[in-house]
Amino acid sequence: MKKKKRLTLTQKRSLTGLTFILPWLIGFIIFYLRSLIMTVDFSFSTIEVNPQAGGYNQTFAGWENFRYAFQVHGTFKQVLTTSIGDILIDVPLIIFFSLFMALVLNRKFRGRTLVRAIFFLPVIMNSEAITAALDYSRQQLMGGLTAASAEVMEGSGGMSLDYYIDMFGSLGMPDMILEYIVGAIGRLTDIISASGVQIIIFIAALQAIAPSMYEVAKIEGATGYETFWKVTFPMVLPHIITNLVYTVVINFAESEIVTLSYSTIFSENNYGLGSAFALISTLIVCLILVIVVGFIQKRTFYYN
């Protein structure tokens, strides 16, 4: 009989732990890590696809794809800057809006469940398929025939922005701020429909704050304003990071640059260039995330 090698209790525990995460570990290595390395590899190569055989020839090309992307390609730079710019504008607005809404919805009032259900609706309806189908039918209309139903669809944006722009412009408001606010109002629908999950996360965070903290603040004589900045805000800050990462990732996944790299790869069969697009945009977004999260994390107080 073979003598079994005895494991210590800790070794046994760690082995069980590994079996628990094993499916993910295998998947991560086969599908994710390998793919990530392959993407980097592709972006440094020229790839000739032969559709008949289904295979491809890969030759090392150095920085050629990156040079092409920045110096030759017609739309890449423009799409990249608009996508990143959109993320930089939208994300703070979404975070502020959802925090604000969470504060409003956190108190008890009649019909709270109904209101929360309504606020989650955009998450359900925020399907690319629905947007695409609606866009397509709007294209078919081409604005020539104005049917009643088309007016209904656009009814929510029926406010004349130009009037307000002129008014605030003549009041001497700085153009930069004015443009940002005008942009924000123009995007209001998008921002509201993108904030469903974030509002829920913030509500959950607010519920998790111990009531005793507010009692102490009250006894010490803090005003509502002070209570918000000294108690509520610091306690919510870690969740701002969570929401920030989530929002940036979701916004990025839906941005134009993803569409561009998708079409470069699958329509033009230019695997190398498309991979380079994907890699560049991912690196930039990760850089932004690291900077912003690092900036907030320094100022975050962790209760535990």
Partner: peptide, 11 residues
């Protein structure tokens, strides 16, 4: 979570 799927879609 952070790296979007489109980075690895081709592989």
């Amino acid at each position: 979570i952070v790296i979007p799927t489109h980075t690895v879609m081709l592989p």
